[in-house]
Design a protein around this nucleic acid. Structure first.
Length: 714
DNA sequence: CCCTTGTATATAT
DNA sequence: TATACAAGGG
């Protein structure tokens, strides 16, 4: 549904987005997208009429993810069907009915697999299912709102009213309703595609001064939308061509010129089409929404704003006279189709939160004290770094410090993500420290100085107070002690005391971050071991030079835009974002829980890795043997023996890049053998430079923790 | 040659 | 349900 091909069409107005770039914001969510996808996972059960909460858990997983980024979600649900869509709905219902019959028929014949595919098509998302999710959200203090009609219009209004800065949806119609920032294709790793309305002229190939949003909307309606089928032979491309060629504002006149403008002589534009076009346009502009702050129904845009004749608004819904009914419909207490009252929850009587459920601390849109918080997280982070620059007057190489700080900041986010990922699996909730990490994510950052000085390994030193404020890197105390800078390497014993930013220290700071990302989230960073060490040797100095240059620009730059400009890097591992040298083009990392849900296993393997790190390894051979110790998977240890490793040292960069994820993943045990095998990742044997003699411990570590030359971008 | 339109397929756990 | 791909039409 929506506008066919619109998302590829607006490619020039879109950019990759990672949720960590929009921390502290509020987003409106098209919840039916999640429910539909969630329903897919349990379609069979639902088709059989069995009870299941799989789809609820699926949605809550997304909610948890948003919360972990300190993003306030507002779940928006569809309300009553519009008369204009009644026909479409009827068709869908019939199609579902047919699928159900087919599935039943196939089941009777015992063809289960075929029956399944039909079962998936016959399940529907009901309001009861929505209400069940709404009730779960009420316990968690997550705002929900049922739109009077289409969720799209409701979300667009939330966006325009600056209640929500972003909208998460799969439905391209959102752009037509006038939403400003829309996130499509959001996955559980927090990656999505951001489409910004102020860039739409780029997609249309229209000069900014000639562009008006009406042009875009008209183009989309012409290409065929939910409310109006397109004229035969007209899609987005033709519609765009026509809109750019005509300056006629009056659609009665303009539309008549389509055949001549587009050289389509056989095309006829009926008067009826023009009327329906204007109706469709009015529907997108003036549909009714619910204003939760004022607690009343309103039009998305007032009729006066466009001087629209009300007779064109026949598809934009009708005002519910009963204000109480409108409120309870918006709260989800009323079935929007039958208008039957199902519940009587109000924001004034919050439901108690069970002990095992976390309650979000965001202000509710239903409460009077709700204030628009236009927190610009990106700017905050920048100023944090700059502030730090001011206070640290001792250091000469302050740039290195800032850079190290940024790495630590990035790593903090990574660990938060990971903790949450474990959390929403909800399997083992043994340690309170994980919950704390969630809490910390929701509360705004403390003073910039504190924040920038945050040391992930300071747990031992700073005492209980620090424990509460900063999320624990790892709940395992021995792990932390092992990692503490003073103990890891004799080379750096005195570094902390002098407080001077020696090269060693700066490298070490980087290393710490990499260690963490290796454990908890990175795919790319795991590639390090396979990198020939001599190559890294030269890389280190290069890297430092580049980093110093980079951060000078990065600090002042608007973060999201700088991110977006590196399209291929946008989906790389969060902790490595700051260090572009270590990022690569490899596919987006998958969430850890999918790979290995057993945290115990991960913890043990992490320790293994630390043991490896602490071993006095002075050449690549011993490094090599250490690597084998790590392996628990028989199938991959064979690939990693030194014998095979020498064979392929001449492989090209691209080959290496392909091979790294599969090998690296196995090594720290964050992936399953099957998952890599399925994807058909070519397994190239590991490469090391056996000639390497005395490599400093530091360099060995660097090689172990993710430093490698960045493969050339295409 | 480009654009539209119809068809096939993966979708989540 | 949305996307990718192929084929047909102007």
């Amino acid at each position: 549904m929506g506008i066919t091909g619109l998302i590829p069409f607006v490619e020039k107005a879109s950019s990759k987005l990672q949720l960590k770039d929009i921390r502290g914001t509020t987003v409106a969510v098209d919840t039916y997208c999640w429910l539909h996808k969630g329903v897919f996972g349990c379609a069979e059960k639902l088709a059989r009429g069995e009870d299941t909460d799989v789809y609820i858990q699926y949605c809550l997983k997304y909610v948890q993810m948003l919360l972990s980024y300190d993003i306030k979600p507002i779940l928006v649900f569809d309300g009553q069907h519009l008369p204009a869509k009644a026909l479409t709905e009827k068709r869908r219902r019939e199609s579902r009915k047919q699928s159900k019959e087919k599935a039943a028929e196939l089941l009777r014949r015992g063809r289960i697999e075929e029956a399944r595919s039909h079962m998936r098509r016959c399940v529907d998302v009901t309001h009861d299912m929505a209400l069940r999710l709404i009730k779960e959200c009420r316990m968690r203090n997550i705002d929900c709102i049922v739109a009077p009609y289409e969720a799209d219009a409701q979300m667009a209004w939330l966006n325009k009213a600056d209640i929500a800065e972003f909208i998460i949806t799969e439905d391209s119609d959102l752009t037509l309703f006038g939403a400003k920032k829309i996130i499509f294709k959001l996955d559980l790793n927090g990656n999505g595609l951001l489409v910004e309305a102020h860039k739409l002229h780029l997609a249309m190939g229209c000069r900014e001064e000639n562009y008006h949003f009406d042009k875009f909307r008209r183009m989309c309606i012409l290409s065929g939308c939910d409310y109006l089928d397109s004229l035969p032979g007209i899609g987005l491309a033709k519609a765009c061509k026509f809109i750019l060629k005509t300056e006629q504002e009056d659609m009665h006149i303009a539309l008549k010129k389509i055949p001549s403008t587009l050289n389509m002589r056989n095309l006829e534009v009926a008067d009826e089409y023009i009327e329906n076009f204007l109706k469709a346009e009015a529907t997108f502009k003036h549909m009714y929404i619910y204003n939760p702050l004022e607690r009343r129904m309103e039009r998305l845009c007032a009729l006066e704003d466009f001087e629209t004749d009300e007779r064109y608004c026949s598809n934009a819904g009708t005002l519910l006279e009963d204000k109480d009914q409108a409120l309870h419909l918006a709260l989800g207490n009323i079935n929007p189709f039958s208008l039957k009252r199902l519940d009587s929850w109000t924001p004034e009587k919050p439901v108690p939160t069970p002990k095992n459920i976390k309650r979000a601390k965001h202000k509710s849109i239903w409460q009077g004290e709700f204030l628009k918080e236009n927190l610009n997280v990106e700017k905050k982070q920048t100023s944090c770094a700059l502030f730090f620059k001011k206070v640290d007057f001792v250091s000469k190489t302050i740039d290195e410090d800032i850079e190290a700080n940024q790495r630590l900041e990035e790593a903090k986010q990574t660990e938060a993500q990971v903790f949450t990922m474990y959390n929403f699996r909800g399997k083992r909730r043994r340690s309170p420290s994980r919950e704390e990490s969630l809490d910390t994510q929701r509360t705004p950052p403390q003073s910039p100085v504190q924040k920038s000085r945050h040391n992930p390994f300071a747990k031992d030193r700073l005492g209980p107070d620090a424990l509460q404020k900063s999320p624990a890197v790892c709940e395992n105390g021995s792990l932390l002690r092992l990692l503490s800078p003073n103990k890891v390497s004799p080379l750096h014993g005195g570094a902390d005391e002098t407080r001077v930013n020696s090269l060693k220290r700066s490298i070490f700071a980087k290393e710490q971050v990499e260690v963490r990302s290796r454990f908890f989230g990175s795919k790319q960073s795991k590639q390090s071991e396979e990198q020939p060490i001599q190559e890294q040797d030269s890389n280190i100095s290069q890297k430092r030079l580049k980093l110093q240059k980079q951060e000078a620009t990065e600090l002042d730059e608007d973060r999201p835009s700088s991110r977006n400009s590196h399209a291929s890097e946008a989906d790389s591992e969060p902790a490595l974002m700051e260090c572009e040298e270590t990022t690569s083009d490899s596919p987006a990392p998958e969430s850890i829980p999918d790979r290995d849900r057993d945290e115990g296993k991960i913890r043990i393997k992490s320790l293994d890795l630390l043991i490896e790190q602490r071993k006095p390894s002075t050449d690549s051979e011993s490094h090599e043997s250490d690597a084998v110790i790590l392996l628990s998977d028989d199938s991959c240890s064979s690939q990693l023996t030194p014998a095979t490793s020498t064979n392929s040292s001449s492989s090209t960069t691209t080959q290496r890049q392909d091979s790294f994820p599969s090998v690296g993943k196995k090594r720290i045990g964050l992936s399953r053998q099957t998952s890599t095998a399925k994807k058909g990742t070519p397994k190239t044997p590991k490469k090391t430079n056996s000639k390497l003699g005395a490599v400093s411990q530091n360099q060995t570590k660097l090689s172990m923790f993710g430093f490698q030359r960045r493969p050339a971008l295409k």
